[in-house]
């Protein structure tokens, strides 16, 4: 390469570099100013926020209306009950899904695919609005119970998939060995395969519990007084942007404090059991 061409190249590179640096400077000015503005407004909000709103309504957030179960208590209660019952439904449908008989596996496939491809809010509407209109007997059932049924029906499908994956994760040799030692298929399933599969499933189940706790917030749409509803009711009484912002952030932090330990423990378990390894 000739000397002149090298020089020309250098000059071009230098020019380009200058332009880039200038652009960066300009951008950094905008970036810097917006970041400082953001923090400034954040600090203003933190110092001037009326914390009394949260403090005065704390009992409402935790326990809901007087004389009823509500608030965070109801959220956790609903999530726990739904998980327990959905687990039973999930095991049944998971085993059906794995079955080689078509009349067992096809209904399970239909149910799982149907529920997994619609949003939860639709399932909740189905359960909370449709059955009460059908007959006199169904009218007297409370809305919370329909909500719990909807959560069971929804989570059951996801747990069924977890159960199926858990059973498939147990090596085939186990089944063959137990069959050759004289157990029937059902016996082998119950005494040999399922216990091992359950152990592998624990982290996924904990994750499912976390998403259930988050999903109970959707019961707000049908008027169940759980944690999100108490937050929204309070923010609706104080119609104020700043207060609202703080309340929503408070709600997010509470959900995080409830959910994060569970997520972290499930990750730890995953590592300990070696499920995540391929």
């Amino acid at each position: 390469m000739s000397h002149a061409r090298t020089q020309k190249l250098t000059r071009i590179i230098l020019k380009a570099a200058t332009v880039v640096i200038l652009l960066l400077l300009l951008l950094s000015e905008i970036l810097f100013s917006s970041i400082t503005l953001f923090f400034k407004s954040m600090i203003t909000v933190i110092f001037t926020y009326p914390y009394g709103v949260i403090y005065n309504n704390l009992m409402f957030f935790l326990f809901g209306l007087r004389g009823k179960i509500g608030g965070l208590t109801l959220t956790i209660l609903v999530a726990a009950v739904s998980l327990l019952l959905a687990f039973i439904a999930g095991i049944i449908f998971g085993l059906m899904r794995n079955s080689r008989r078509w009349w067992l596996s096809y209904p399970a496939i239909g149910y799982i695919e149907l529920v997994r491809s619609v949003p939860l809010i639709l399932v909740i509407f189905w359960f909370c609005f449709f059955p009460p209109g059908l007959s006199e007997t169904l009218k007297s059932v409370g809305r919370v119970y329909y909500g719990i049924f909807a959560l069971i029906a929804f989570t059951g499908a996801y747990i069924a998939e977890i159960v199926r994956a858990g059973i498939l994760s147990v090596s085939k040799g186990q089944m063959e060995a137990s069959r050759s030692s004289g157990l029937t298929h059902t016996q082998a399933m119950i005494y040999i395969i399922l216990p091992q599969a359950l152990k592998n499933m624990i982290p996924s189940l904990v994750n499912q519990f976390v998403s259930l706790i988050k999903d109970t917030s959707l019961l707000w749409f049908v008027g169940v007084m759980e944690f999100t509803s108490t937050i929204f009711a309070t923010s609706n009484r104080e119609v104020n942007t700043t207060v609202t912002m703080g309340l929503y952030f408070f709600a997010a932090v509470v959900y995080f404090l409830v959910c994060y330990p569970l997520t972290a423990s499930s990750r730890k378990l995953e590592k300990k059991l070696g499920v995540g390894e391929r």
């Binding site: 005065n56 309504n57 009992m59 409402f60 209306l65 007087r66 008027g223 929204f232 009711a233 309070t234 609706n236 009484r237």
Partner: peptide, 16 residues
Amino acid sequence: DSVVPFGFVGEKEREL
């Protein structure tokens, strides 16, 4: 439960 002043959750009463 959110229409002031027809029906809403009172702050002191924790009731509708």
